[in-house]
Write a protein that binds this DNA or RNA. Structure first.
Length: 558
RNA sequence: UGGCCCAUGGUGUAAUGGUAGCACUACAGAUUUUGGUUCUGUCUGUUAAGGUUCGAAUCCUUAUGGGCCAACCA
């Protein structure tokens, strides 16, 4: 990445202006997840944004769980969120919870009541909705709007003490039922929920709404720049109103456009459905756009951070091409992945002039990184190569194996195909080849240059492994924007399990290793591997210029 | 048919009244013991119409298009 970067996103501009004119000497941001689901790639964008701002400018970032709705929240999510943020490479200053502030928030509510700015409403949810009006029509005042301060205080206390059932009463701000901003039409501040909270247990049976908790928590933590997504723009007016009336530290809210990625969904509700209805194997299914899914798939934190930086921050609607994410992970993996050879769909090759013995050949672990060293690979008389690396009647510009043609076997010898043996159905059973002994890699005196280089494994030394190949989860670019249920657009072929014949060094694969299976793609060991069974996830394929070439001319073929 | 937000190549994002740039993609070529990588080059853009100005992607007006707002969700 360029370090001479001079352009700023709009938030950096605001902060630089704040710092320059002395509004702040340092800044405080926060990442405020609700612990009701796993983090996804969209959250990664927000995490990078919030944490990078306080790396770039003086200040710090808090992690604050917005845990004001106990019925959907759980400590399982808290733990996963913390793990994911750390894995991405960020560390927060303080770990906080909105629930840490419940006492304080209750006092804030009492303050509002005393100021005549909040009241207890006995209306039902339906009634409140009816009295709300519409964007083009004003709402109506609740019949309970003008209760005395004493009565409000007393009722609110009884709400807190559990004297009323769920849904029977709410605390509402007293603003303006004709306000042009629907959120200012006496928004609900507190509701009754006799529910067990993952942190406060059964202490509370009333819980603050988002608007009554978020801005106040920001204020308590002296957050200077409270960054959220565009759908909260209308909330800003209420955010500011509450801070002003409460006369507390003036945090400010700024909004940016959430990042959308094509061929997937990033909505916790939808992701939860995919998990609950078993369309995927869990939150960390490698097809999921969750951080844990990407991690299991083999994505690196570096590549995700790079992606977030490249897509930037702005205020306009967007649909980022998943191809950019794939570019980022390929770029990183190319530098760090260990090269290995694995044959997926084997055809047997017999080197007829090679003796009945084996030799060990040396091959570099990573041509991009000499320090990665080399490994030894057994070479013998019987080998496997990829079935589609041989064609009986090769098309133009094909430089793999064909009758009478020569290819290089990677890190080994040049071979020439002399004969093909077919079975009764006409399928190719094996290929008889001869090798050029003087063409051994690193010691090639043959003077022969061939265009094609193939990967291979020694048949009798090959290790059988399982490979899971993933494709995009949805068939359309924007499943959430299509007609009908987003699940109608699920790609039923998003997981393909194949067998592979691997070079023996893969027996030493560890879970943190990243591999490039030569000419195939990038892979990592899956956590399902056990008891000598090796399972690899395909992170992403290699770019395949030949496949593209074939596609291009394929349609023109007679 | 209320209010608010937004509009730059296929995609994402810069240019802050003064040469429309960068990245991805696509295409062409070079290199290559991975048809990978790397390198070089090419194509494609300011939603529209007015206005202000010596000069407008940028400021103003209108139109058009997209998004958001009527959960006791966040």
């Amino acid at each position: 990445m360029a370090t001479t970067e001079t352009s700023h996103n709009f938030l950096e501009e605001i902060i630089e202006e704040n710092l320059k004119n002395g509004t702040y000497k340092s800044i405080v941001t926060r990442f405020p997840p609700e612990p009701n689901g796993y983090l996804h790639i969209g959250h990664a964008s927000s995490i990078c944004l919030n944490f990078n701002l306080t790396k770039k400018y003086p200040g710090y970032t808090n992690l604050r769980f917005d845990d004001t709705n106990p019925v959907t929240e759980d400590t399982e999510y808290v733990e996963s969120i913390k793990e994911d943020i750390r894995w991405l490479g960020f560390e927060w200053k303080h770990e906080r919870y909105a629930s840490d502030y419940f006492d304080q928030l209750y006092e804030f509510a009492v303050t509002l009541i005393k100021k005549g700015l909040a009241y207890v409403d006995d209306s039902s949810s339906d009634e409140i909705a009816k009295m709300k009006g519409t964007p083009t029509e004003p709402g109506k005042n609740s019949p309970f709007r003008n209760r005395s301060t004493e009565e409000n205080i007393s009722l609110f206390e009884k709400m807190k003490n559990g004297e009323f059932p769920d849904g029977s009463r709410t605390l509402r701000a007293k603003i303006d039922m004709a306000h042009i901003n629907m959120l200012m039409r006496d928004p609900v501040l507190y509701r009754i929920k006799h529910a067990h909270h993952h942190r406060t247990g059964d202490k509370w049976c009333i819980y603050p709404m988002y608007d009554m908790a978020h801005g106040q928590s920001d204020s308590i933590e002296n957050v200077t720049h409270s960054i959220c997504t565009l759908e909260f723009v209308p909330h800003r007016e209420l955010y500011d109103w509450l801070i002003e009336k409460l006369e507390i530290y003036p945090s400010h809210q700024y909004e940016f456009a959430r990042r959308n990625i094509n061929y997937t969904v990033t909505s916790k509700r939808k992701l939860l459905q995919l998990v609950n209805e078993k369309y995927v194997a869990g939150w960390d299914d490698p097809r999921m756009p969750t951080i844990s899914g990407l991690r299991r798939r083999g994505y690196t934190p570096e590549s995700i951070r790079d992606f977030c930086e490249r897509i930037g921050v702005a205020k306009r609607e967007n649909l980022v091409d998943v191809g950019l994410l794939e570019f980022c992970v390929r770029e990183h993996l190319n530098k760090i992945a260990l090269r290995r050879m694995v044959v997926f769909d084997p055809v047997k090759v017999v080197i007829t002039n090679y003796p009945e013995e084996y030799e060990l050949l040396k091959s570099e672990n990573n041509p991009e990184d000499e320090s990665a060293g080399t490994r030894e690979i057994p070479f013998g008389r019987e080998l496997y190569i990829e079935r589609d690396d041989f064609i009986e009647n090769p098309p133009k510009k094909y430089f793999r194996l064909a009758p009478g043609q020569k290819v290089r076997l990677k890190s080994a010898y040049i071979i020439k195909c002399d004969e093909m043996i077919k079975d009764a159905d006409g399928n190719i059973k094996e290929l008889h080849c001869t090798y050029l002994p003087e063409s051994r890699s690193g010691h090639d005196t043959s003077g022969i240059h061939v265009k094609g280089t193939l990967h291979w494994v020694s048949k009798n030394n090959a290790v059988e492994v399982e490979v899971r190949e993933y494709d995009r989860l949805f068939k359309v670019e924007n499943p959430a924007g299509e007609d009908g249920d987003f699940k109608d657009y699920i790609n039923e072929h998003s997981l393909k399990i194949v067998k592979g014949f691997a070079e023996p060094s893969l027996l030493y694969a560890k879970s943190e290793d990243r591999f490039q299976f030569l000419r195939k793609g990038y892979y990592c060991l899956d956590k399902d591997s056990a008891n000598g069974k090796f399972i690899f996830n395909r992170t992403v394929t290699l770019k395949d210029a030949w496949a593209k070439e074939q596609q291009k001319y394929g349609s023109n073929k007679p």
